[in-house]
Write a protein that binds this DNA or RNA. Structure first.
Lengths: 213, 213
DNA sequence: ACCCTCGTAGTCAAACTTGACTAGTAGGTC
DNA sequence: GACCTACTAGTCAAGTTTGACTACGAGGGT
């Protein structure tokens, strides 16, 4: 599962009502193009698809205030809200070796109560531990680890990265338990979207962090 | 870019001539289903696509030795070999935040001369360093890092993971420079595919390393 | 003889992703 | 006043990925 649905649902929800271009700008503001496949086509596709599935409600709107083609505005339905929360919880809880989903979820984590966030992160650590154990046991041949040759380096890479992920998760838990950030039901929520007309302070023109692909 | 083309080219090349099911088995043997999108559909699609592009040569074959539908065997063309090497070098050199490509490349790294492997890995470290610098500088707001709120945790996650990737890379360089493994032109290459009829010692039946998605 | 399962080899439709393209308005400038 | 660029908002075809499905034969049980 890619992160795009979670990102789009989260963005629309923060606005209450948003059109595709607004979502696009928010994702750029969040830097999501750096760590997820949040390209225009994917965003518009996700909006239409989720509208078809009843997760979003589409409103046709007049041809826009300042130039350009007519736009469609979307609102999250009750069903969409359930889906959003399910995706969010799943993304935090489960270790799936692709960080885009986790990154998106971290951006929305304050939508959960503080205790639940911590509990989910602890589930995550446990999942990493289990995964690590299964993999190291499974890929340890009887003739000793050397019989794998350089192939063992692949497992080494994955285990290394799992350990690093667990360490980061433990750090985040500590900060959250230490009272950092404002979670659900703790007062004014953090505002993470651009208001209509507001410009992205991190927008293009700044040296691109070098996609050396 | 996904890892599937590199994996498929590499698998076919190791056999000299292989049909889709063989490639499929090799990838399972390598554990690629754990760390890449190597599903049957993707593999057969990649084979057909690369045949159409002239990277592979397709041979229609008699309806198989032991049951089942007729199969198509593939061979890597000269053009395909160039592509294979280009993909391999690129995958090692460039930091693209998705480990499946790197994992695949590590599996084939001994196809390169030892010095080149080390040089490419050093390029990789340099790329990570540049990426890290650009990102930390870019996403540090003037009002101090606290103004980002919990959003800063996303950057924290990515930087943490980049550092971990660099550390792993340094470790691998050290092992290679220390003489580990057998590289191109250093004698009998490591055999990493299943012979016809050979069974996968790591095959299913073993507890699945828990895809908690 | 019949059924059931397993292994072999692959196809296919539906969904998703990508990158290039369209189309309209505003604003500057020569 | 004609042209050029930038911004707004989105569409589209081509390519890729997914997960479920097909079809065939061998082997074993009853």
């Amino acid at each position: 599962m890619s992160a795009i649905r979670l990102l789009v649902l989260g963005a629309v929800r923060m606005h209450g009502r948003a059109h595709g271009y607004q979502v696009r700008n928010d994702l750029e503001y969040w830097g999501a193009h750096e760590w997820s496949n949040a390209k225009p086509g994917s965003i518009y596709h996700a909006l239409k698809q989720m509208a078809k599935q009843g997760l979003l409600l589409a409103h046709e709107t007049a041809p826009s205030t300042a130039g350009g083609p007519p736009r469609t505005e979307y609102e999250v339905t009750d069903e969409g809200l359930d889906e959003y929360r399910a995706l969010l919880r799943d993304a935090i809880r489960s270790y799936d070796r692709n960080m885009d989903v986790l990154s998106a979820a971290v951006g929305f984590i304050v939508d959960l109560p503080r205790e639940e966030a911590v509990a989910l992160l602890k589930e995550r650590i446990e999942g990493i531990r289990e995964w690590r154990e299964a993999v190291t046991e499974y890929y340890t041949p009887e003739e000793g680890p050397e019989s794998l040759g350089h192939i063992g380096e692949i497992m080494n890479l994955w285990v290394h990265s799992a350990d690093s992920g667990a360490e980061w998760t433990r750090g985040l838990i500590a900060r959250i338990e230490g009272g950092a950030y404002t979670f659900a039901g703790e007062g004014d929520p953090f505002v993470g979207v651009l208001a209509e007309g507001e410009e992205n302070p991190y927008a293009t023109g700044v040296p691109d962090p070098g996609d050396n692909e």
